[in-house]
Design a protein around this nucleic acid. Sequence first.
DNA 1: GCTCAGGCGATT
DNA 2: ATCGCCTGAGCG
Length: 809
Amino acid sequence: MAELAQVVVDVPTMQTNQPYTYQVPEALEQKLQVGMRVVVPFGNGHRQVQGFVVGFTDASDYGGKLKPIQAVMDLQPVMDAEMLALSKWLADTTYSFWIACLYTMLPNLLKGKTHRVVRVVDELPEQDYFDLFAGRDTRDYADFADDPTAVSRLLKLKRAGKIRIDYQVENRARAKTVMGITPLLSFEELEEARTSLHPNAHAQNRLLSYLQSIGGQTVVQKKAERVAQLSAATFNQGAKKGWLKKVPVEVYRRPQSQAALPDDHHLQPALKLNHDQQVAVDQINAAVKDQQAATFLLQGVTGSGKTEVYLQSIAQALAQGRTALMLVPEISLTPQIVNRVRRRFGSQVAVLHSGLSNGEQFDEWRRIERGAAKVVVGARSAVFAPLKNLGLIILDEEHESSYKQDEAPRYHAREVAKWRGRYHQAPVVLGSATPSLESRARALKGVYRFLGLPHRVNKQPLPPIQVVDMRPEIKQRGESNFSRPLLQAVSDRITRGEQSILMLNRRGFSSFMMCRDCGTVLKCPNCDISLTLHMDTRTMKCHYCGHEEPIPQVCPNCHSRRIRYYGTGTEKVEQELRQLMPQARIIRMDVDTTRRKGMHEKLLKQFGDHQADILLGTQMIAKGLDFPNVTLVGVLNADTGLGLPDFRASERTFDLLSQVSGRAGRADKQGQVIIQTFNPDHYAIRDAQANDYDRFFFQEMNLRHQASYPPYYYTVRLMASHPEEAVAARAMAHIKEKLHQRLAPQTIILGPTPRAIARMKRRYYYQIVIKYKRDPALHATLEEILQETQSKGFKDVQVSIDPDPQYFM
DNA sequence: GCTCAGGCGATT
DNA sequence: ATCGCCTGAGCG
């Protein structure tokens, strides 16, 4: 007796964050299933919204009259039981709206668009009818949206009952189709048709033979034209004569880069494993086979063949009839690893990442959902890939902070992966050369199972790392981004026809305008941060709100002309490098040069083809690249991140330096790494130089222990904002008081403090950081705070909660 | 998020 | 008395 449906509606607010009960009209009773999207009326007026059916019930304790579901948007559920349960868990643990979690887990196209349509229902004054409707009866409300006078006139007419505003939810999820043909006649009938042909009708004759050859199948017309060497006109004639019919055929929009890959008959075979790799693969396989939801930490130095372990483990999972999911930090950054998976597993691989168009994303999702793809490679959100019967989940570079989403829902892909592993009784493999302290500590405690790959596959030593102290360099030669040893090394490579990668660590860094006379720094009018100089557009930009203004000629404060830019951006470094080495060919890679789609791949390809001697870029060049001709890696400023007010600053610096060092000399040529720093004695730099993860780990663990930070404590960050600073501060003080009353005495509450960037988008931000080991009251207290800050005492105060934050700025 | 009702001051 | 704007409640 499932006649009432529980629907989560697309109204992301605290108050509506619960399923609403709707009647199921008789006509929909057979069609409707849990996990489908529906259109439901919601609220007053003619409003309708998209929603998700999350359950059925036969009774409701709601006092009012139940409304009926208006329409079903899907033929098949878009969420199965696993995904629904996961969405609920996600909402719960990240303190987010259920509806937001549902959308996060699905392709963008499944978020319906609502249109508002203005409809004339009664005689209008001539003037209004002419001005607003131009003689028509309906118009799209969006046409008026940015014309305030028109909007107010419309509202007046609406109050007078002359017009209505209707809502329409548009389902944007459509499969792409191409024209196909299906023979309508049997072999014999086609033969019969042939006898009545004019002797000169060669083309039609060939068409008949072709139709006979495909035996009733539907074929894409373009393909038929090619195979049978016929024109579209002949097919049209065939259709007219009733030999065949034209039918739309669903096709998948495949990402362009996929076209160039070899077909399934030319897949790359597995490589031979060394002993350590074999041990790792065996352990993982055993867990897959025995359906153990174990988490493995696979720690392997650069070049130790982690990827091959992943691939062979995936192969085993497939051999067991199960599917596999492999996550990589940001896929467009690592085309090489994606291609390796594709070359091994061919067309059963689906790729999901942010560079796909909505259509491509939707189609890859459908291939997975229908079981056509059994291996999924993707970035963070691919952790929600609708694979059934998962046998193995891999997170490569598990320490990467990009696995944590920095907007709501603030989930960590690692935790979602572990959840899915438990659900499917499948192992999760976390791989890294420099595991996060959290993961390594868990491996030490036996919570994760440790697998080590301490040796490089090619037995080559890691490249020597030279640390250059910049302090004497600057003293002797004045301001420069390049030390003499680095310049010498780069110029040696150019002489030898080899290549160099130079990395500028830009974390917490920007080029800003500063007046040399009065010290005024050009700041964003909306946010409390300095504007960044962008030479390409010749503007000053705010990286937080997008505000843009021309580069000033004079200081806005003292009108001095001596206003200059300050700091080091890749553009400025490039300029200096061009001056120092006019003969060098340089490719610059940063957010500016890679903004356009496909530029990333293009620049990397250019560099790979040796069209440049130097690849100069930000962190984005540190990961996953593998160019055999690169024998020098230089880090221009190793320590800009060290000074940040963030307990993970050292860990990130160590990771970055270790990571980037692995980029030198991976083939037969000996590589070299040069790190420029003002802190040559810092343990993160020293240990990275010595390639000593363990020493870094224990030193850093010590510090975390003393300061009660992860992995010894968990952290949660609470943020509150308001256009007025005092209101934000007062709200936070109240929240702190509440936390103090409710939380365990061992729990540490830091703050409230203004955030490092205290004002953003015209709002003032305060934050509280909670550190706890175990606090049974925490979850309920935070939920309560979210509820409470909806009340009138907290008008316009926005509160957000970030569990396990990756950044504290 | 959006709408409507009720309250209030401004406008005729 | 009427209009316009703000605020808060409720949405099934």
